[in-house]
């Protein structure tokens, strides 16, 4: 097994050791008995378990930084299992925004995720992106309105009401019958506004 194959096998097994037999199957014919034993031993080792926990902590920390209110909402709704499901998917990045975007994609497709959570994750990802765009534009963003840079998010719940409820530990908001539309623009000092 080449170094590249070993690294690929390790990164496939790492988030989800149940993948080991699948990884071994994929490599059938290419692995010696010794290599097969090595990968099996690796997948059953406490060392891999610990490495996985370290990976999970970093992924969790990135989400905590990129989408803090969504993570708070997950705790409030006791939906930590959704994060655990996500973390069984292969990791793709070291960076906050990219991790949050991958989580957002996962959550939008997950039937167990309530719409309030989907809305919050989508909102915070867009907000984080707008903040980065603002930083990229320099420390003196223009206050001019730039229609081409404006992103429109159609949501069911008002993110501001949700953030307030999380901060004040009051009941979470209900859905808005007509929906909520949020606009984001990195040229605006506050970055976003509710238009409907």
């Amino acid at each position: 097994m080449s170094l590249r194959d070993w690294q690929a096998a390790l990164l496939k097994i790492l988030p989800n050791p149940e993948q080991t037999s699948h990884v071994l199957e994929q490599q059938t014919g290419q692995l010696t008995r010794r290599e097969r034993d090595h990968l099996t031993g690796l997948s059953l080792s406490t060392g891999l378990d610990v490495t996985r926990d370290v990976q999970i902590w970093w992924r969790q920390a990135r989400l905590q930084i990129a989408i803090p209110f969504s993570m708070r909402l997950i705790q409030r709704l006791e939906l930590q299992k959704i994060v655990a499901q996500y973390q069984k998917r292969p990791c793709t990045t070291l960076f906050f925004l990219r991790e949050a975007q991958a989580f957002s994609e996962f959550i939008q497709e997950n039937p167990e995720a309530p719409t309030l959570l989907r809305d919050m994750v989508q909102f915070e990802c867009a907000l984080h992106m707008a903040r980065l765009r603002q930083a990229g534009a320099g420390s003196h963003p223009t206050q001019e309105f730039s229609p081409s840079d404006t992103l429109e998010l159609p949501l069911t719940y008002c993110p501001e009401d949700c953030m307030t409820a999380l901060l004040q530990n009051t009941p979470l908001p209900g859905s808005s019958p007509d929906g909520v539309t949020i606009q984001m623009n990195s040229h605006w000092p506050r970055l976003w506004r509710r238009v409907r």
């Binding site: 990164l11 370290v54 970093w58 992924r59 292969p90 990791c91 990045t93």
Partner: peptide, 8 residues
């Protein structure tokens, strides 16, 4: 593309 998310 696979990422470790931490140094290996």
């Amino acid at each position: 593309y696979l990422h470790a998310g931490t140094q290996l």
